[in-house]
Nucleic acid binder design. Structure first.
Lengths: 198, 198
DNA sequence: TATTTATATTAACATTGTTCACTACATTTG
DNA sequence: CAAATGTAGTGAACAATGTTAATATAAATA
């Protein structure tokens, strides 16, 4: 019974890894049951022995990518930053992750996975993701009386909707039309939202 | 030769109308060649005599819906409003349109039509849409020295990315999870961006 | 009227997700 | 050890998608 469990988890892992590779490399549009299974080295029907359906599999990828993204941000942000500077840097790193893996942005924010996600737990995780990443820094700002609790919430929400909206345009519609313009706009507006003077 | 033109345009119109009805009613996910053709009263392959492919048809819908949306906003916003108040009201009306027709939001901002849209002309139209709607009001604000030209651009961009991001979460992920919460957050944050005191 | 042109449709193909029935193998049981 | 049971992996098949080629029918022209 324990062996079964291990083997089953291993098999699931093969499919999950394959799916993640495809999303990272070829993007979300390239995902298909047959595609995943081929890369995993199994027939496409075998996948259904380990996942209810393809959404079930994708669902797991979302969770994995969230951890990966958090790690990516931690690696990219200078450790000694605190407060607003840390929040800005983390938001930039957050966007960089999706610039590097546009397929994961699609998966997180664009793709209609509402059907699969009946309990909405993952949706909430994504919704609060940037806030969780920046939570301690906001608390730091509040303690130092740089902002009130309410302001912190407002700024946080604004930051999230702004960066998501901007990424949506840039990744999905190529507007702004080049990368430099994108970063300039991004950095400037993050500064505006956080009321930072550069 | 002229008759041909009229007839051809009429035929195109049948398919376009059918497609728009489906998008408005059942949402973008319900769109399919067979679905459109059935509603138009023709066989599905007939569609290909009038449109290069389904993207070509959808493309026309985008343009139509843009006009419709502009009209919707004009109808909903009080005529006597000017400046910041007009901008806020128009942005709210803008979001209301997509709340009413979520399928059109998908079409405008979510769906990957980048392939079809080789010249990117439509993309740019969408990108600058809210700005065009509010253009005169911004100019009004600048003339009255309420904001500088640069501030107007910043606020405008922020407004657009914010409202798009918020709609993306609300329509695509049901976050915030109820409508009242959505409007409260929306109205408050629009005020913040425009630095209005309520 | 007969021929040509245009147009609507039927048939077909490729690609998607998913289900079903079968085979081969492993595990348990007598 | 042999027989029964169960399980894991697979190919065939189905329905729905977009798209194309060939065909039949309607319209226009000679």
């Amino acid at each position: 019974m324990d062996k079964k469990e291990i083997q089953e988890q291993r098999m699931r892992g093969y499919f999950i890894e394959a799916a993640k590779e495809i999303i990272r490399g070829e993007g979300f549009k390239a995902i298909s049951v047959r595609n995943i299974a081929e890369r995993a080295g199994y027939s496409y029907t075998t996948l259904y022995n380990y996942f209810k359906d393809i959404k079930d599999l994708i669902f797991v990828c979302v969770k994995d990518f969230q951890d990966e993204c958090a790690q990516f941000i931690a690696d990219q942000v200078k450790k000694d930053l605190t407060g607003m500077a840390a929040i800005k840097s983390k938001t930039i790193a957050f966007s960089n992750y999706f610039i590097q893996y546009p397929g994961i942005f699609e998966l997180f924010y664009v793709e209609k996975i509402s059907d699969l996600n009946s309990q909405q737990s993952t949706t909430k995780l994504i919704y609060s993701f940037l806030d969780r990443i920046c939570e301690e820094d906001w608390n730091d700002c509040i303690e130092k009386k740089l902002v009130t609790k309410e302001e912190a919430e407002d700024y946080g929400a604004q930051l999230q909707f702004f960066i998501t909206g901007l990424l949506l345009f840039y990744l999905n519609r190529r507007q702004p039309s080049d990368y430099k313009e994108f970063t300039t706009l991004r950095d400037k507006q993050i500064g505006n939202i956080l009321k930072l003077r550069s």
